[in-house]
């Protein structure tokens, strides 16, 4: 199966060459296949979020290389990285990162603004996605008027608005209740069926059953890899 993401000696060091230096990630070599669900597992502070940020092209490594569909992410300009994020990756953040002053539908649709998509089309696509995630009734509500699970569904809808190949979710179960977790698992499964690659960082074992591959992360290093046949 085709490799969609690959890293070589990827490292992220905060405050390098100072007394506050932190090696958040060190010599990470991983490969993720297209259409797989990959889980980065490990305790809090192990470096999962740092690794997932580097894979999602929202942060830059201190050294090492990351490749996305054969293209070296780490060598790309800011403009090229933005293009990758726009066209290839959908990110679901741990704290959802919705814009408080925008309604649910506007939060979902705003990534389409710089692409020159008309307001009508943006709203059509946004409402379609929100309805898919049973949020049709609450699309005019602002994030503060939504529960954690509902906010997460808005965040997932936003990640899908550009129809990306890769969905990345950082600790997706940490801010939602059990019912929402169940719904999330169904959603992830449905997205995998659509052929998307999904990368999840979590220490929640309820998601492990979904994984094609689990990378164990500890102290900024990959300490193990488990592959499963789904």
């Amino acid at each position: 199966m085709e490799t969609i993401i690959r890293t070589e000696k990827l490292a992220k060091i905060y405050n390098p060459d100072t007394s506050y230096e932190v090696k958040a990630l060190w010599d990470v070599d991983i490969e993720i296949k297209k259409g797989h669900i990959a889980i980065l597992s490990g305790p809090s502070g192990s470096g999962k979020t740092t690794l997932i940020s580097l894979l999602g092209a929202i942060d830059r490594p201190t050294r090492g290389k990351a490749f996305l569909m054969g293209e070296e992410l780490t060598a790309m300009s800011d403009v090229a990285l933005s293009k990758v994020r726009r066209e290839t990756i959908g990110f679901v953040f741990q704290s959802f990162n919705l814009i408080p002053r925008l309604s649910a539908i506007d939060n979902v649709a705003f990534p389409l603004i710089p692409m020159g998509v008309s307001v009508t089309e943006r709203h059509r696509r946004g409402s379609e996605l929100l309805k898919r995630f049973q949020m049709g009734e609450r699309m005019r509500h602002n994030p503060e008027e939504l529960s954690g699970g509902q906010q997460q569904r808005v965040a997932i809808a936003r990640a899908l608005i550009n129809n990306p190949h890769i969905i990345i979710a950082d600790e997706p179960t940490s801010n939602i209740d059990a019912e929402a977790v169940k719904y999330l698992i169904e959603t992830i499964f449905a997205l995998k069926k659509e052929g998307r690659t999904i990368i999840i960082s979590t220490h929640d074992q309820s998601l492990f059953n979904l994984a094609d591959v689990i990378f164990d992360v500890k102290d900024g290093r990959i300490t193990g890899m488990r592959e499963f046949k789904q």
Binding site: D78, V79, R86, I99
Partner: peptide, 20 residues
């Protein structure tokens, strides 16, 4: 700053953020 980070994370270019 956080808002701009979200815009950039969802694919906005720096020039598009400044335009807005």
């Amino acid at each position: 700053k956080r808002e701009i980070g979200i815009f950039k994370a969802t694919g906005w270019q720096t020039s598009e953020v400044l335009e807005m």
